[in-house]
Simulated assay, not measured.
Amino acid sequence: MADDDTYRLAQDRWLDHGHLAELRKSEVERAETRSRLAQDLRCTETDISDEAVDTDFQVRATRQYSQFYRLAWREMIAPDTERSLYPALIPPGATHVHAVRSAILRDNHSTALLAGLWSSIPMDYTLRTTGLGHLDIAQARRLPAPHPDHPLASALLLRTLRLNCLTSAYAALWEELYSPGWASEPWARVWSTMRTDISAVTRRWQRETPLRSEYARRAALVEIDALVAVWLGINADTLVTMYRARFPIMQDFDLVTWFDANERKIAGDRYTYGHGQDKDHWQQFTTHLGAPESANVPEGYSAPFYKADREKEMREAHAYFQKRLDEAVARGEWDPVKQEVPNS
């Protein structure tokens, strides 16, 4: 078995674009690098070209891929699961084998936005309709990437990070990308019985930073589905059609999914049971639904209950995000044709 140093040296090395930009901006670094190269090559500093200095910068700005926050996804695209694309942000130190792929964009902000974009039904639908069985790096490069200055970027980033930043391993990422504007970010729709406040976050990562309840996590995913649809110019009817056409397992799960007053899930399909649920809980729950005044709710659950209705949820969230984007366009903050911030 290889020792740790051998293992790290064998890893791919990726370019840290942020570090490279810092090196390029520094006249001190440029002068010191030119002097060092001249000494190494035994020539004058005037013989060292700008290209040689920049090549040295690029070498110094590379590091093992496992030192980055990365977007990771399952390489196999299965057509017979609830979703096909399973993206996640993974922290420095984590490594993986061939069945998983990972990547970074130019900075952590863009990487996190891409994780949100890829978590949506529209992106999943795109892969399902192409019949692609495997998503390797070459195929991934062909997928759209989000513009960091889009009017909905902040809303997407908040939901993505609250779904992904589950432990203190993500504290640095959270604090780097935190936006004070999140304090006024609402849920896109009224989620009945929801206690979790999407905007209840601070700059410092805490245990309460990630969404932990099953209800809140599903709500964030549904809102991401709608947000990305608006971002890509997909109307609500088309989004619902995507869901109906290519996500039969998700539809089956939604038909038998409920959430209690404490945001705990209870479901009628064993493949989507809530945490700590067993089949007796569902039997007790259906009895309660049939006779709520005489039959108790299952032990560990609390009334009232909310029934999942993804089509309605997506339509309402879509209307909210569409209105928000339209208002930004009307204020001159976004050009929907060129998909960029207009020149001032």
Results as ranks from 00 to 15, higher is better:
Y215N: 00
A103W: 13
M242K: 07
Q284P: 04
Q39P: 01
T202K: 07
Y271L: 08
R162Q: 02
S110H: 06
D40Y: 04
Y320W: 14
G233M: 05
A78T: 11
K338P: 01
A219C: 12
R204M: 06
L166G: 02
A21T: 11
T286N: 05
E208S: 15
A319V: 09
G181Q: 11
D4T: 11
Q277Y: 11
V337K: 08
Y273G: 02
C165A: 15
I249R: 15
D335G: 04
A145Y: 12
S302V: 13
L113V: 10
N164T: 08
A245P: 00
A145N: 06
W182D: 00
R83F: 13
D197H: 15
L71S: 02
R162T: 03
I266A: 03
Y215C: 00
S120V: 08
A115W: 12
R246W: 08
I249G: 02
G233F: 10
K265Q: 14
V341N: 02
H98E: 14
W334S: 01
A172M: 05
Y170T: 02
E208P: 02
A52M: 14
A88M: 12
A319S: 14
R270W: 07
D149M: 11
V190F: 14
R203C: 06
V240K: 03
R203F: 01
Q139S: 15
H134P: 00
N262R: 15
I137S: 10
L85T: 05
R212W: 08
L156Q: 07
V59L: 12
I224W: 07
A169E: 15
Q67L: 13
G18P: 06
C165S: 13
